[in-house]
Design a protein around this nucleic acid. Structure first.
Lengths: 100, 100
DNA sequence: TTGGCATATCGGGAAAAGTCGATATACATT
DNA sequence: AATGTATATCGACTTTTCCCGATATGCCAA
């Protein structure tokens, strides 16, 4: 993954917030039936609701974050759940500490 | 300093390169008379030369990086020298590790 | 198999960033 | 004081990003 795409993904208030929310889902989202935060993450609809932006915008933002390896998705039935990608975040931390 | 401005500053190939160059100036720039890399950094002209972009663009890029607290400047005579801002970079590393 | 949700993709208009050349400013030398 | 050099700022144009509404797709239930 290109470093620049990672930083671009992070250069937006809403996307940054989403990552923060996904760090502690219990704190930011209501209980979900049949889908545990730890395993699958949070579904798009909840994230959209919390963000206040349009459905299409949030869907796009999530895919930007995913392309940057900052989150990943699981499809369950008609829902898509997103959660933090710990690997990717660690890699980012590494870049900061070794290359900049 | 706004987090978003930090990530925006990093969302550009040349600016990212500049930070990399400033991490090991001896490796990327010729010896400078009367100005030690460690103390004051590297002067704008050298950075511009290496980047291949126009003088105005590099001057602007440097100020973007500076506003993001990623580098800082020292004026010596008619030259401005820029070097890494270790504080700011540490703060960034902290953001990544605690907020995302 | 039709209808209803949840999500993704597409097309577009407005705002921001990338980049330049020209010009201004600041300092140093003559 | 006048000139030369280093850097900063300005104005303009092009490309990218921000968001939206509309439409498509995928999955489920009746």
């Amino acid at each position: 993954m290109d470093q620049i795409e990672i930083f671009k993904a992070l250069s937006n208030k809403t996307r940054l917030q989403i990552l923060g929310w996904l760090k502690e889902p219990e704190l930011h989202f209501p209980e979900q039936p049949n889908a545990d935060f730890e395993n699958v993450g949070v579904c798009v609809g909840q994230i959209q609701l919390k963000s206040g932006l349009s459905q299409s915008t949030i869907s796009e933002y999530l895919s930007i974050l995913q392309r940057a390896d900052l989150i990943n998705s699981t499809r369950l039935g008609q829902w898509t759940y997103y959660k933090r990608n710990k690997e990717g975040l660690k890699k980012l931390s590494n870049i900061i500490n070794t290359e900049l």
